[in-house]
């Protein structure tokens, strides 16, 4: 029997500095594009980003609002569930702490939702404490559509499928609601250091 998809066991370039999670390989300068569907064409005139769901009020930013929010530069390592890791990637974006400031959450989970219909679920706590961003820049340039532009979620301490491309909002949920890949059997949390690829192994 052959492997029809990329497979989860890398055997290529390795690192010895303790920054490579188990089962991963260093992809080097490449930045593989994974796409499970067509790349959305986004009209920035009608684009918005919202925090909604189990909250006391919906927070909404237009593109103009979003670009005016305080941005920070972020350098992080990425770990994709298909076994590649990419080191010292440079992003620019808005901390989720800024976007979630002042909300009164009625639940402890979120569903990130996107143009194209993609969703992924995370604990709300993982979006706070300077560990998650809504990014609109990569490598000193505006974030390209193939990499999730105009805005994608960046949660580098979890597998990259949690860093949803083409982000349109965060819905606070009372219960953990499996997203696109989680409903296919992917792990609900996705910690690369514990190799949480599939639910139940």
């Amino acid at each position: 029997m052959s492997t029809t998809t990329r497979g989860f066991s890398g055997r290529r370039r390795q690192r010895t500095d303790g920054r490579l999670p188990p089962g991963q390989y260093d992809v080097g300068d490449a930045f593989p594009v994974l796409s499970a569907g067509p790349t959305p064409r986004v009209d920035l005139g009608t684009w918005d980003l919202t925090v909604q769901g189990q909250v006391d009020h919906v927070a909404r930013w237009t593109w103009e609002d979003f670009t005016a929010l305080p941005h920070e530069d972020i350098t992080v390592d990425l770990h994709c569930v298909t076994a590649w890791s990419k080191f010292d990637t440079r992003w620019r974006g808005v901390s989720l702490d800024t976007l979630l400031e002042g909300i009164s959450p009625g639940g402890s989970f979120v569903s990130a939702f996107c143009d194209g219909g993609y969703t992924t679920n995370l604990p709300l706590a993982d979006l706070t404490g300077g560990r998650a961003w809504a990014v609109d820049g990569y490598g000193g340039a505006p974030l390209e559509p193939v990499h999730g532009g105009p805005v994608r979620l960046l949660v580098p301490h979890l597998y990259l499928w949690k860093s949803a491309k083409w982000l349109r909002g965060i819905a606070v949920t009372e219960h953990d609601e499996p997203g696109f890949w989680e409903r296919f059997g992917y792990h609900g949390y996705g910690d690369p250091w514990r190799e949480q690829r599939y639910a139940g192994g």
Partner: peptide
């Protein structure tokens, strides 16, 4: 068919 993903994803040619 979208093959550059963690799984093969087949989409409807009419509604995607």
């Amino acid at each position: 068919l979208y093959a550059d993903a963690p799984a093969l994803v087949l989409r409807c040619r009419d509604c995607t």
